[in-house]
Amino acid sequence: MIELKGIHKAFNTGRENEFHALNGIDLHLPTQRVTAFRGPSGSGKTTLLSIIGCLSRPTSGRVRLGERDISGLPERFLTHIRRQTFGFIFQQFNLIKGLSALENVMLPAYPLGGNWRALHERAESLLGDLRLAHRRAAAIEHLSGGEQQRVAIARALINDPQIIIADEPTANLDTGLAMEFMAILENLHAVGKTVILTSHDPLVVDATIVHQVIDMRDGRIVTPVPIAEGCA
């Protein structure tokens, strides 16, 4: 369960170009659900996502993750929580060029220092699940957009996180690939993952597997958020 209370986020505070990305967000996100944030660009979706994912800290307000208030934790702890709890799928995929698909998938596990053989096998099996086993040694820039996204998904799953965060996941994909992504999403939900994503793609927000769509505008939530419907 993730709970946000009175979240504000300002950039360039005190300067001429001061900019408020979030203006008081109160939110309750249940586990094992697929939640989508919808809104025009500049509405604060991505900023909110990065606060939920512990990538950045709110200017004010509190964030609770499970039973734990994480808003005041120093960066080190946030990093620990981030890599144990969250898997990220970025809009630009953010894969590292020049490395192989397999290496890219293994990267988030490097700082944990686990057994190499086990990690290697796990990364291969994830790539296999996403039908990329034959491309595992290929350098990332030689992969197609859809393949790159599947590598990014495999990377998000390598540390077996509870929560998957996806920022505009279908923005760079054609319809076929977007449909494929939604199928993968369904599988993730089926194995009990919580998914939080942003999108303004009807293909995503209107999909049946999305349990909840939250509309945003000017750093505020505009749709009344339904209280969790009896989900654990």
Partner: peptide, 19 residues
């Protein structure tokens, strides 16, 4: 810019500054 971006990516996917 590439290298800077890479460091950003590493941090986003769970690397600490120390790593």
């Amino acid at each position: 810019a590439d290298e800077k971006r890479e460091i950003g990516i590493l941090k986003a996917i769970g690397w600490e500054t120390g790593d």
